[in-house]
Design a protein around this nucleic acid. Structure first.
Length: 120
DNA sequence: GCAATGACGCTCT
DNA sequence: CAGAGCGCCATTG
């Protein structure tokens, strides 16, 4: 495994910053992590995580506002939905979240982009 | 170093 | 509004 590359740390930090009851898209996280356009890297970083990771990975969804079907058939996508509903996130009949209401809207200062690397 | 795969995003139909 | 196709970059073999 890559043993947590530099980019991964940025991604994890952003994911950990997602407030409860809100969901962020891979592209959003990627941009905040300084990896604009590399949404795939975000998905890869999360895939590298385990179900035991302390990060709220379940708050990360795709641009469609739906849980992405990961390979392996872990069935964790259902767990992700359950967790989000538990936090107050509502899903529509198609199992998709209304990003217009539950989508995470970070402050502009945070939107500076790749500038948030200060670590406390 | 090259080739294949992947928890994505955007555009077209 | 929903579904399918193409392109992007990063990681792994």
């Amino acid at each position: 495994m890559a043993v947590a590359t530099f980019s991964y740390q940025q991604i994890y930090r952003v994911v950990a910053g997602i407030p409860s009851g809100r969901v962020a898209t891979y592209g959003q996280v990627a941009r905040l992590a300084g990896l604009a356009g590399r949404a795939r890297a975000v998905g890869y970083a999360l895939s590298a995580l385990d179900g035991t990771s302390p990060l709220p990975w379940h708050r990360v969804v795709n641009a469609a506002g739906a849980v992405s079907p990961r390979s392996g058939g872990d069935g964790m996508e259902q767990v992700q939905r359950m967790r989000l509903q538990r936090e107050g996130v509502a899903f529509d009949a198609r199992g998709r979240v209304r990003l217009a209401d539950f989508g995470w809207q970070p402050a502009e200062e945070l939107l500076r982009g790749a500038q948030e690397n200060k670590k406390a």
